[in-house]
Design a protein around this nucleic acid. Structure first.
Lengths: 193, 193
DNA sequence: AATTTTATTAGACAGTTGTACATTAAAATA
DNA sequence: TATTTTAATGTACAACTGTCTAATAAAATT
């Protein structure tokens, strides 16, 4: 299968458009491959020529969004209204990206979604945070475990954010995140009293 | 549907046994309802009388495991070898429970699993941790957001633990967790230099 | 522009899903 | 124990899935 063949590009584009259109009406689970093909007006056999399941199609779009996360993480501050030194920029950029693609992340974190999507996002966040965390020269610290801890903690906040329909502002999310990092140490101290 | 009817109890038991048997051979995704019924020797219509999908059957077993988490969290220290004052007991009890049901959690955190299972576990951990976290009298602190952060951070460690096939010891997991809580504050300070 | 290559199609296949309904058998209860 | 209630069965149905084949049409190559 040659991904540069104009027929392939055309077909994949039609599938992408069709899936996004259907995802605005209902969730991925209740969309059938037959339905996608009927609306896309493409043979069902062609679908299976490109994808194993409808989930693979969604993942193709997913990777596009991950590219944006990557870009916005390493790119200039631009539309971020906060000064870099004020609050941890790592989390700010991630929160910013998630809000930008809020419709998408509602799907990713929806109850019926697959953990595979979660992991795609989680691993991306983990790698991004690892860039900062590897700066610690601490023999006792297990870096992969710590980045797993940190990445998933931020995602926990995002889950909460999604579940209340993004009612918190970007600034508030960052303010709280900074607050959490501060009190973690205090919490531990209590158990050593 | 009367859940106390001996026919119902018997049928549900057969389904539970059959599912667990099949889950040792392959993942939930590749198990069909027809297959469960064929092995259980129960009519397929009966299955749909009790469950919407095979996932509901799995969730029924899931709730049993959650009950154990609840119990081991609030129960006596018993088989926990570490002194309560040494390390944060909340995480220790959770790690202990996860290791006890390691086969089960391998399924829960497997790539193809549904986020709905993740959320069942996440919400349980969140509620358990909230008991401790509500002790903070801090107006600026968003408790639901903080417990989301804390609960998911611990689950992040568990994900890492599962992914390396539980190669870390219980003690090591707790030691690292305590360590993470300590350095979080330090990390934040760096951005304020 | 002619030829070769290959993506796409149409159609068929067995197996699964979710639902429905009348029948049967087992449990609850009077 | 006899009667009533209802869980479980057998069967059928339309729709979806995943796979395969030969035919077709569109692109790449010469």
């Amino acid at each position: 299968m040659n991904l540069n063949d104009r027929r392939v590009i055309k077909t994949k584009n039609i599938f992408h458009q069709t899936l996004l259109k259907l995802l605005k009406e209902k969730n991925l689970e209740s969309i059938s491959v037959s339905e996608i093909c009927k609306i896309a007006n493409v043979n069902r056999g062609t679908f299976y020529l490109h994808y194993d399941q409808k989930e693979n199609l969604f993942e193709e779009y997913f990777m596009e969004v991950m590219k944006d996360l990557e870009k916005s993480y390493h790119g200039p501050y631009q539309d971020l209204s906060i000064q870099p030194h004020e609050i941890d920029p790592s989390s700010l950029r991630i929160f910013h990206h998630v809000k930008k693609y809020s419709d998408f992340y509602k799907i990713v974190f929806s109850n019926k979604a697959s953990l595979s999507y979660y992991y795609l996002f989680y691993n991306k966040v983990k790698i991004l945070l690892e860039e900062v965390l590897t700066m610690y020269k601490d023999d006792k610290l297990n870096i992969p475990l710590y980045s797993a801890y940190q990445a998933n903690a931020v995602i926990g906040m995002i889950i909460q954010w999604v579940s209340n329909d993004f009612s918190y502002s970007l600034d508030y999310m960052n303010e709280q995140y900074a607050h959490f990092l501060k009190i973690d140490k205090f919490q531990l101290a209590k158990y050593h009293e």
